[in-house]
Protein backbone atom coordinates (compact mmCIF):
# COMPACT_ATOMS: atom_id res chain seq x y z
CA UNK A 1 0.00 0.00 0.00
CA UNK A 2 1.26 3.42 -0.83
CA UNK A 3 1.89 5.49 2.23
CA UNK A 4 1.02 9.13 2.06
CA UNK A 5 2.76 11.63 4.29
CA UNK A 6 0.96 14.89 4.93
CA UNK A 7 3.31 17.68 6.04
CA UNK A 8 1.57 20.22 8.24
CA UNK A 9 4.29 22.86 7.91
CA UNK A 10 5.57 24.05 4.54
CA UNK A 11 9.18 25.06 4.05
CA UNK A 12 8.33 28.62 3.08
CA UNK A 13 5.72 29.02 5.80
CA UNK A 14 7.99 30.95 8.20
CA UNK A 15 8.91 33.38 5.38
CA UNK A 16 5.30 33.92 4.43
CA UNK A 17 4.31 34.52 8.04
CA UNK A 18 7.17 36.96 8.58
CA UNK A 19 6.13 38.76 5.41
CA UNK A 20 2.59 39.02 6.79
CA UNK A 21 4.00 40.40 10.03
CA UNK A 22 5.98 43.00 8.06
CA UNK A 23 2.85 44.04 6.18
CA UNK A 24 0.96 44.56 9.44
CA UNK A 25 3.89 46.56 10.84
CA UNK A 26 3.80 48.72 7.72
CA UNK A 27 0.06 49.29 8.27
CA UNK A 28 0.78 50.25 11.89
CA UNK A 29 3.46 52.68 10.70
CA UNK A 30 0.97 54.15 8.24
CA UNK A 31 -1.56 54.68 11.01
CA UNK A 32 1.13 56.29 13.17
CA UNK A 33 2.10 58.63 10.35
CA UNK A 34 -1.54 59.52 9.70
CA UNK A 35 -2.11 60.25 13.39
CA UNK A 36 0.97 62.46 13.50
CA UNK A 37 -0.16 64.34 10.38
CA UNK A 38 -3.60 65.00 11.84
CA UNK A 39 -2.06 66.20 15.12
CA UNK A 40 0.35 68.49 13.30
CA UNK A 41 -2.55 69.94 11.30
CA UNK A 42 -4.46 70.53 14.53
CA UNK A 43 -1.47 72.33 16.02
CA UNK A 44 -0.93 74.46 12.91
CA UNK A 45 -4.59 75.51 12.88
CA UNK A 46 -4.83 76.23 16.60
CA UNK A 47 -7.20 78.98 17.56
CA UNK A 48 -6.18 79.92 21.09
CA UNK A 49 -9.71 81.07 21.83
CA UNK A 50 -10.99 77.51 21.31
CA UNK A 51 -8.06 76.04 23.18
CA UNK A 52 -9.90 73.51 25.34
CA UNK A 53 -11.94 72.01 22.51
CA UNK A 54 -8.98 71.77 20.18
CA UNK A 55 -6.74 70.28 22.86
CA UNK A 56 -9.38 67.65 23.65
CA UNK A 57 -9.61 66.80 19.94
CA UNK A 58 -5.84 66.48 19.64
CA UNK A 59 -5.62 64.24 22.72
CA UNK A 60 -8.46 62.07 21.39
CA UNK A 61 -6.83 61.68 17.96
CA UNK A 62 -3.41 61.00 19.45
CA UNK A 63 -4.74 58.49 21.99
CA UNK A 64 -6.92 56.53 19.56
CA UNK A 65 -4.17 56.55 16.94
CA UNK A 66 -1.67 55.25 19.46
CA UNK A 67 -4.01 52.55 20.68
CA UNK A 68 -4.58 51.43 17.09
CA UNK A 69 -0.82 51.24 16.48
CA UNK A 70 -0.27 49.28 19.71
CA UNK A 71 -3.07 46.87 18.80
CA UNK A 72 -1.81 46.35 15.25
CA UNK A 73 1.77 45.81 16.37
CA UNK A 74 0.82 43.39 19.10
CA UNK A 75 -2.04 41.41 17.65
CA UNK A 76 -1.81 40.76 13.89
CA UNK A 77 1.89 41.62 13.49
CA UNK A 78 2.99 40.01 16.74
CA UNK A 79 0.87 36.94 16.20
CA UNK A 80 2.23 36.38 12.68
CA UNK A 81 5.78 36.76 13.95
CA UNK A 82 5.18 34.28 16.76
CA UNK A 83 3.60 31.79 14.38
CA UNK A 84 6.59 32.17 12.06
CA UNK A 85 8.98 31.43 14.93
CA UNK A 86 6.91 28.40 15.93
CA UNK A 87 6.82 27.06 12.36
CA UNK A 88 10.56 27.59 11.97
CA UNK A 89 11.26 25.74 15.22
CA UNK A 90 9.10 22.81 14.08
CA UNK A 91 10.78 22.63 10.68
CA UNK A 92 14.28 22.75 12.15
CA UNK A 93 13.72 20.30 15.01
CA UNK A 94 14.48 16.61 14.95
CA UNK A 95 11.47 14.46 14.34
CA UNK A 96 10.14 11.72 16.53
CA UNK A 97 8.14 8.87 15.00
CA UNK A 98 5.01 7.93 16.94
CA UNK A 99 3.05 5.04 15.43
CA UNK A 100 -0.68 4.96 16.03
CA UNK A 101 -4.05 6.55 15.36
CA UNK A 102 -4.47 10.24 16.05
CA UNK A 103 -7.46 11.46 18.04
CA UNK A 104 -8.14 15.14 18.66
CA UNK A 105 -9.27 16.26 22.12
CA UNK A 106 -10.96 19.49 23.23
CA UNK A 107 -8.10 20.62 25.43
CA UNK A 108 -6.36 23.79 24.30
CA UNK A 109 -3.27 25.78 25.17
CA UNK A 110 -1.96 29.01 23.74
CA UNK A 111 1.65 29.44 22.74
CA UNK A 112 2.83 33.03 23.24
CA UNK A 113 -0.85 33.81 23.83
CA UNK A 114 -1.36 33.66 20.06
CA UNK A 115 -0.94 30.20 18.55
CA UNK A 116 -3.73 27.87 19.59
CA UNK A 117 -2.73 24.26 20.15
CA UNK A 118 -5.10 21.35 20.57
CA UNK A 119 -4.13 18.27 22.47
CA UNK A 120 -4.12 15.06 20.46
CA UNK A 121 -3.72 11.46 21.56
CA UNK A 122 -1.81 8.96 19.47
CA UNK A 123 -2.97 5.46 20.35
CA UNK A 124 -1.20 2.30 19.35
CA UNK A 125 -2.80 -0.61 21.12
CA UNK A 126 -1.88 -0.19 24.77
CA UNK A 127 0.40 2.77 24.28
CA UNK A 128 -0.96 6.28 24.36
CA UNK A 129 1.07 9.41 23.74
CA UNK A 130 -0.18 12.96 23.94
CA UNK A 131 1.04 15.63 21.56
CA UNK A 132 -0.11 19.08 20.49
CA UNK A 133 -1.29 20.16 17.07
CA UNK A 134 -1.69 23.68 15.68
CA UNK A 135 -5.43 24.26 15.56
CA UNK A 136 -5.07 25.91 12.13
CA UNK A 137 -3.67 22.65 10.77
CA UNK A 138 -6.49 20.46 12.07
CA UNK A 139 -8.33 20.58 8.76
CA UNK A 140 -5.48 18.70 7.10
CA UNK A 141 -5.84 15.67 9.36
CA UNK A 142 -9.54 15.66 10.18
CA UNK A 143 -11.26 12.40 9.36
CA UNK A 144 -8.04 10.66 8.36
CA UNK A 145 -6.98 7.27 9.67
CA UNK A 146 -3.37 7.97 10.64
CA UNK A 147 -0.82 5.21 10.86
CA UNK A 148 2.11 7.22 12.08
CA UNK A 149 2.53 10.68 13.50
CA UNK A 150 5.77 12.61 13.15
CA UNK A 151 6.35 14.99 16.04
CA UNK A 152 8.87 17.76 16.70
CA UNK A 153 9.32 19.22 20.17
CA UNK A 154 5.99 17.65 21.21
CA UNK A 155 4.05 19.14 18.30
CA UNK A 156 2.59 17.23 15.36
CA UNK A 157 4.67 18.07 12.27
CA UNK A 158 3.38 15.47 9.81
CA UNK A 159 1.13 12.43 9.65
CA UNK A 160 1.25 9.27 7.60
CA UNK A 161 -2.03 7.80 6.38
Amino acid sequence: MDKQIIELYEKDEPCLLEKRARIWRAVALGVAFLTLTVCVLLVININRFHFNKELAAAIAVCTVGGWTVISLMHFPAGDSHNEARHAKAILEAERETVPGKLTVTDERIYIKKAVTMRKVLVENGEEKKSLWINERKLGAVKGLETKTVYAANGFVAAVEV
Binding site: V43, F51, E54, L55, A58, C62, T63, G66, W67, I70
Partner: peptide
Protein backbone atom coordinates in the same frame (compact mmCIF):
# COMPACT_ATOMS: atom_id res chain seq x y z
CA UNK B 1 0.44 54.64 29.64
CA UNK B 2 -0.07 55.82 26.07
CA UNK B 3 -3.22 57.76 27.01
CA UNK B 4 -1.28 59.58 29.75
CA UNK B 5 1.73 60.24 27.51
CA UNK B 6 -0.53 61.45 24.73
CA UNK B 7 -2.33 63.91 27.03
CA UNK B 8 1.00 65.23 28.39
CA UNK B 9 2.58 65.68 24.98
CA UNK B 10 -0.47 67.34 23.43
CA UNK B 11 -0.93 69.62 26.40
CA UNK B 12 2.73 70.64 26.35
CA UNK B 13 2.74 71.33 22.60
CA UNK B 14 -0.53 73.25 22.68
Amino acid sequence: VWALVSALICGFVF
